[in-house]
Design a protein around this nucleic acid. Sequence first.
DNA 1: TTCCGGCATACCTCCAGGGTATGGCGGACC
DNA 2: GGTCCGCCATACCCTGGAGGTATGCCGGAA
Lengths: 290, 290
Amino acid sequence: MPEPEIRELRYFRAVAEDLNITRAAERLGIAQPPLSRAMRQLEHRLGVDLFDRSGPRLGLTAAGETLLKESGPVLDALDSAVRRTQRAGQSSGGLVVTAKPGVATEVLHRIVTELQGELPGVQVVVSGFGEQADMVRDGRADVALVSRPFDDHGLETELLYTEPRVAALPARHELAAREVLAADDLAGIPAPRWSRADVAERNYWSARPDDPVDGPIVQDSSQLLEVVAFGQAVALVPQSMAERNIRPDVVYRPVADVEPYQMLVVWPAGSRSADLAKFVEVAVRRSGGP
Amino acid sequence: MPEPEIRELRYFRAVAEDLNITRAAERLGIAQPPLSRAMRQLEHRLGVDLFDRSGPRLGLTAAGETLLKESGPVLDALDSAVRRTQRAGQSSGGLVVTAKPGVATEVLHRIVTELQGELPGVQVVVSGFGEQADMVRDGRADVALVSRPFDDHGLETELLYTEPRVAALPARHELAAREVLAADDLAGIPAPRWSRADVAERNYWSARPDDPVDGPIVQDSSQLLEVVAFGQAVALVPQSMAERNIRPDVVYRPVADVEPYQMLVVWPAGSRSADLAKFVEVAVRRSGGP
DNA sequence: TTCCGGCATACCTCCAGGGTATGGCGGACC
DNA sequence: GGTCCGCCATACCCTGGAGGTATGCCGGAA
């Protein structure tokens, strides 16, 4: 009896989000009366009131708030299951691996080269910054190389390597005069933020509200160094990236007490395919350095 | 378009489990032809073949295997969302906390006593062994006291306290002559297993195949000591339990290199209600000892 | 060959999800 | 206070699809 259908959950989320059945209905592409009825039916199925219709404006009851929070994981799990199933049916064999541009792609290249032959059909997808973990979670990729911090919900990880991070400063910056910095020296100075192409469509911001504040938005490492050279920001970058990007208008200084850069390989929790195990094994073995 | 409904997932799981549409249909309480059609429709919706109908016996394709694995989390998440929503709607206010009988209930009693007044309506549910984590996951309880090892998928935890574990031996056992034991001494000796009332209905065993092997099945600590006294098994028990159960036919011996007994408070990942926070805070504070 | 277990096809029924039209109701504005 | 408007609920119709029965098709075993 209490078996809400997926459609009802999607409808409920739309209504609960803007607390207006009429607008939610047109967003969903259906008429208002069926949506109104669907919500009453959902309440009846669950045996609890979800909406508070007493006030002038539609409100959520405690049960409604709960369902709003809980419906997200359900719909995400479903989407993920569908994607993984479709991928398993189409590209028979072969892993999809993703990584952000920059440091990770070099490691990835070495891994893929080694896997040629043993593991046919490894497909590499270069993805946006911060998107890797989501791609693994929702089934668009089988495995990813990521750097901390990232959201590890539903993922298993293996550490590949760590590397010191250094501060990238404009050459004429006052801190450039010092040989070594402390993390506190950078407090209050704007840090660049990686752009994420899909931020507009999906509500990342509500899920992860603790992203770094202010600072210009950059899309790759050369853009990052550009804004540093312009004096718009100071960035913490992995040492190997500093070594590969020597330029006269940017200087690098070690920072004493900052967390090192960590590169990890991540995959969906519970996933145990032979191809995946092979990939992780080679990744760990071939990551003696950046 | 690719929007499988919950019913289809449940149907699919039933079919995939016994690989026989006719029997699955009667298990589901429907006729065979609709089920057959539903499976074809599901395949069409997802755009992949789920079943291998070529052989004499029905088989699963790689995509089918994937969907079978992935459908579990989806259905669990849905059930959990429904339960939590219903609980939020009915018992307005109040936590449901669960713990296994024995050591935990004493700690729980102290916590609940302290919370009288500040937190009205704390409801304690004593549950079967090993069931606590599942109850929190699927929404039957808000918070639980558990001891390691337990399945922490989808849960957040806080360590309450640790306590050494000692071996409970029959008084006439040869190892009783020694003052202190090593973990290796117990290798190969049967250990008691906690019974779990709901094992029959839900397939716990497949989910957690690494439970201790052999040994008699017990339901509470007095039964446990009984089978120890009878010489049927040797058990590792928390020290405080040993101190409260002095009997002539059982002796307790420290074990050098065994993991200590750990008691934790666990709650659903992401749950942040004020009542829950209060409970966890008091639990941590009031757990100075067993 | 003859069963028989097991899946697919054909066809029917009926409910529920979606549509339109309209009523009720409270707030805002004149 | 009257009027209008935004918004939800109710009434009614229509159609797609989920579930039922009857039956055909096919491969394996006796």
